[in-house]
Design a binder for these strands. Structure first.
Lengths: 180, 180
DNA sequence: AACTTTGTACAGTTTTTACCGTACAAACGA
DNA sequence: TCGTTTGTACGGTAAAAACTGTACAAAGTT
C-alpha cells in the first residue's frame, strides 16, 4: 500500500465517523461526508468541487451545504478572481458545538417557554373559575405545578445556553493547555 | 367552552410542542406525543392505554416506548395486581437532559476518539516512513495536526459529559431556588 | 445587448423510515 | 395441562425524506 492510499484511508475513516454521528446535529450522513471532505480539503471548495469529490448532484450539494451553513459548521469564503461560491469548514469545533445550542436548542427552548406560559395562564384562570367541580380543580392544580416545573426547567436551559455562549463553560471544563 | 375542554387544550399545546422538538433527542414526533401524554397521565400507563389514547397500533407503542426507555425518558413501573407492563415518565427533566449526553453523545465521542486515534497512529507511522515524497509528508503533517486538534476536542467533550454526570454543571448554572 | 456561468426552485424518482397487522413465544391462570 | 393474556419479531405497506435532472433567474462577461 503506497503512502497516498494510507493517507486516504486514514481520512476516510474520520469522514465516515463524522457521517455516522452528525445526526446529533440534525444532519444527514451525506452532509456529514460533505463536511468531512471539506475538513481535509485545505482550500475552500466550490459546489462543483464537492460534486466531483462526492459523486453527488450539484443540487444536493447546494441544499446540504446550506444546512451546514445554517448551523455555522461551514462558512462562505472569498478568493479574488474566483466567481463560484466558496465554502470552508469553520475550524473552531468548540464554537460549533456551542452554535448547535445557540441555534437549534435556543429555538426549541423558546417555543417551549411560550407554550408553557400560555397554558399556565389558561390554567390559572380556569383554577379561579368558581363554576368548576372540585375534582377538576384538583387536576388543574396538579397540571399547574407540573407546568411550573417545566417552566423553571426551560428557564434553566436558557441560562445553560447563555453559559455556553458566554464561554463560561470553559471555566468549568477548561480547554487543554495548548502544546502539552 | 367548559373546563375540561380548556384543560385538554392547554395540555394538547404542550404535548404538540414536545412532539415538534423531541427530534433534538433523536426521537420522532409520535414518540414525543407519547411522552407528552404520559407526562400528564398521573398513573403509569400500559401499551393498551397508549394505543387507546393516541389511536396508534400497539406495535408502534411498543417500539417507541422502547426508544423512550432507552434514553431513560420513561421507566417501567410496577403496581401489584397489574399484569401488563407499565410505563411512566421520569420526572427529573434535568437528569433526562444529562442522560441524553450520557447515552447518545458519550457513544459518539467514543466512536470518534477511537477513529481519530487509529488514524493518528497510521499517519504518524507514515510520516516516519523515509520513502514518501516531501510533498506527501507535508500533507501528512497537516492532517496530523488537524487530528490532534480533533482528539483534544473530543477529550474536552468527554470531560464536559463528566461535568454533566457529576452535576458540576449545576455549580455553573444553578437550579432556581425552590419556591420563589 | 447578447451570451455564459452559477446557484437554486421545483417536480419527479428513489431510498429510507414509520407504521400496521399477523403470528407467535413467554408468562400467567385455571 | 390447556386456555388466555401480553409484548414483540417480522413482513408488508404507507408516508416521509433524500436525491436527481431540468429549467430558470441572477450575476458576470464580452
Amino acid at each position: 500500500m503506497d503512502g497516498k492510499e494510507t493517507l486516504d484511508k486514514a481520512r476516510e475513516r474520520i469522514i465516515e465517523t463524522i457521517a455516522q454521528n452528525i445526526h446529533l446535529y440534525g444532519l444527514t450522513p451525506s452532509a456529514g461526508r460533505q463536511y468531512g471532505t471539506m475538513f481535509f480539503h485545505d482550500e475552500p471548495m466550490t459546489l462543483d468541487d464537492m460534486t466531483e469529490e462526492l459523486g453527488m448532484s450539484k443540487t444536493s450539494m447546494s441544499t446540504s451545504v446550506r444546512a451546514l451553513a445554517e448551523l455555522k459548521l461551514v462558512e462562505r469564503a472569498w478568493i479574488r478572481g474566483v466567481r463560484k461560491d466558496l465554502y470552508q469548514v469553520k475550524d473552531d469545533w468548540y464554537q460549533s458545538f456551542i452554535n448547535l445550542f445557540s441555534i437549534k436548542w435556543r429555538r426549541s427552548i423558546s417555543l417551549h417557554s411560550v407554550a408553557v406560559r400560555k397554558s399556565l395562564r389558561e390554567l390559572e384562570q380556569l383554577k379561579n373559575n368558581p363554576d368548576i367541580s372540585e375534582e377538576l380543580r384538583t387536576i388543574v392544580e396538579m397540571d399547574i405545578s407540573k407546568l411550573e416545573y417545566v417552566r423553571d426547567y426551560f428557564e434553566w436551559m436558557d441560562r445553560l445556553v447563555d453559559a455556553f455562549e458566554d464561554h463560561d463553560i470553559f471555566d468549568l471544563v477548561p480547554l487543554k493547555e495548548h502544546g502539552e
